[in-house]
Amino acid sequence: MSTILLIEQVLNGLQSGIMLFLMAAGLTLIFGVMGLINLAHGSLYMVGAFAAAAVAAATGSFVLALVAALVAAAAAGAIIELVVIRRLYDRDHLDQVLATFALILIFSEGTRWVFGSFPLYLDVPAALSGPVTLPGGILYPAYRLLIIAVGLVIAAGLFALIAKTRIGIQIRAGEADREMIAALGVDISKLYTMVFALGAALAGLAGALVGAIQSVQVGMGEPVLILAFVVIVIGGIGSIKGALVGALLVGLTDTLGSVLLPIFFASFMDQSSATAVGSALATMSIYILMAGVLLFKPTGLFGKA
């Protein structure tokens, strides 16, 4: 394999990792601060994508579509926090899983009811639709570069928010001791709604950005949700830094695994069985990675014991 192809695949891995980070960041924030397992996070991703597709179809503007995705997902997140999630903080994880699983079904059938059963159309804006030439003669889709850039900006913004701002201090305090910060006069339920809406907005943005290069359809969030859970388990539950490192690891392993493993096996097997074995192993690679990490670091790379 040529170096150019390898660099291109590394970029692909980075891009898929960054996208996963947007999903995983919200998930890990919600779990870390509120102790809640939110299976409906994938539905918020779907809400973002559908909102973007609807607004893009109505106005033709991709920027407005992204704004709509952020607003719709944040609003959906705030509403389910107020109506459903709020009642689950003191319950055990099994009750949370049951209730948020019900939310997945409600969101899926609700979306189908509103938008119909057929996938929607959402495309990248014309200005970003083609490839650009990177140094070294690598052709790479402009839109994917944008995704990498947007993801990095958001990651930096999140770190700044958590580390430098008053809200960040409250979030970290809420994570450590929720009774104490309530006693200190912080409106904890408002804080929870805000964190939940923030996580939802990130998921919605990811849904809209990815929806433009993938399919906008009912049930699109669940496969990503599974990967996002793998990411936060690897990174350490509740850690934003862990989510970033975990997402990049998963993205790179997944992409490079599917490309390199068949080539590796082809070096000592015949072509068709190498393809079969390589593809099968590539499918498992991220789970093997997760098992490996948990073996040496049972709380994840950046998890607190």
Binding site: Q15, R144, Q214, S215, Q271
Partner: peptide, 19 residues
């Protein structure tokens, strides 16, 4: 001859191979 994951949504790696 490339076999992808069932339900895969990102084909960047395969498209690079096609290129």
């Amino acid at each position: 001859e490339v076999y992808t994951k069932l339900g895969q949504t990102d084909y960047a790696a395969e498209i690079a191979q096609i290129r």
